[in-house]
């Protein structure tokens, strides 16, 4: 039982980080119909901004994180929107899908060439202590990761539902044409979405890199997991992405321990196929109807 609690908890901690990536993914989809195939690389990159800040510029951990946040907002938010997404929107979704695939490749290879191909150790954000609670060993890091991700997603949810800007963003996501008629600055709202996605990616990156080490190829698995989480939970709901992320984290851990380590990464994929078969709108999603 103690072991089970331990597995669930560390699954939730990992899952909450996946949820951050998945929420950003969902937001981008809602605001601009962008399926971002580079989402995994978006989570991989900020960790290297932090490392550059610490090793090249000699800054401390927190100033480096701040630097990484600014750089991410600039590169993954503003530049991604202005240089890649915006010129391609009139061409439809397909060229954009291809372009984000190429962008992912570009980010990955650039990190590999300009920083290094080996996994880099990343300084932990939380103390590396492990507490014994009722026979289960609980890592402070897991609790910290879970708390920070939940705070970030909770804060985002409050922002979207309680503030005027947040509601304007929701209106933009639901129906850009009507939102524009009602006086919402649609372009600015879409830009906010891209900035939020970049910020979420930075948080996820800083949380996950101490566990998995910072490596140029981290994005491959992370992107896949973010996808699956977003679809399993429901593509058009933030809380769906949250539930999806947590579920994937827990399932991943449980299957690694109880089923087969070899087929560990197959479980989320099987879940994905099952969801698409039986509940294509996702666990919490609402059906959007056919677009044709």
């Amino acid at each position: 039982m103690a072991e089970f609690i331990q597995i669930i908890l560390s699954g939730l901690a990992a899952g909450s980080i996946y949820a951050l990536a998945a929420v950003g993914f969902t937001l981008l989809w809602q605001a601009s119909q962008t399926i971002n195939f580079a989402q995994g690389e978006f989570v991989m990159l900020p960790a290297f901004f932090v490392l550059v800040g610490m090793t090249v510029l000699g800054l401390g951990l927190w100033p480096s994180v701040a630097l990484a946040l600014v750089l991410s907002l600039l590169v993954l938010g503003v530049m991604f929107k202005k240089l890649v997404v915006e010129p391609m929107l009139p061409h439809g979704t397909l060229p954009l899908v291809i372009a984000t695939i190429a962008l992912g490749l570009l980010l990955k290879e650039s990190v590999k060439e300009f920083y290094g191909a080996t996994a880099q150790p990343f300084p932990p954000i939380f103390p590396q202590e492990v507490y014994q609670v009722a026979g289960a060993s609980i890592a402070a890091q897991d609790i910290g990761n879970l708390a920070v991700s939940m705070l970030a997603i909770g804060g985002l949810q409050l922002f979207l539902t309680r503030t005027r800007t947040g509601r304007c963003m929701q209106a933009t996501a639901q129906n850009p044409a009507v939102a524009e008629i009602l006086g919402v600055n649609v372009k600015r709202m879409v830009m906010y979405t891209f900035l939020i996605n970049a910020a979420l990616a930075t948080v996820a990156s800083v949380l996950i890199s101490p566990i998995y080490l910072a490596k140029f190829s981290n994005g491959e698995t992370l992107g896949l997991v973010a996808f699956i989480a977003a679809i399993v939970g429901g593509f058009n709901q933030i809380r769906g992405a949250l539930v999806g992320g947590l579920l994937i984290g827990v399932i991943d851990n449980i299957s690694a321990v109880y089923i087969s380590a070899q087929y560990r990464s197959a479980m989320p994929l099987l879940l994905l196929i099952a969801i698409i078969l039986f509940r294509p709108q996702g666990l919490l999603g609402t059906s959007e109807g056919r677009s044709v």
């Binding site: 979704t93 899908v97 896949l224 699956i228 679809i231 994905l272 056919r290």
Partner: peptide, 11 residues
């Protein structure tokens, strides 16, 4: 279902 679900299934 629409929306490039085939992309995800094939992935």
């Amino acid at each position: 279902v629409q929306h490039h679900f085939l992309a995800f299934v094939t992935l």
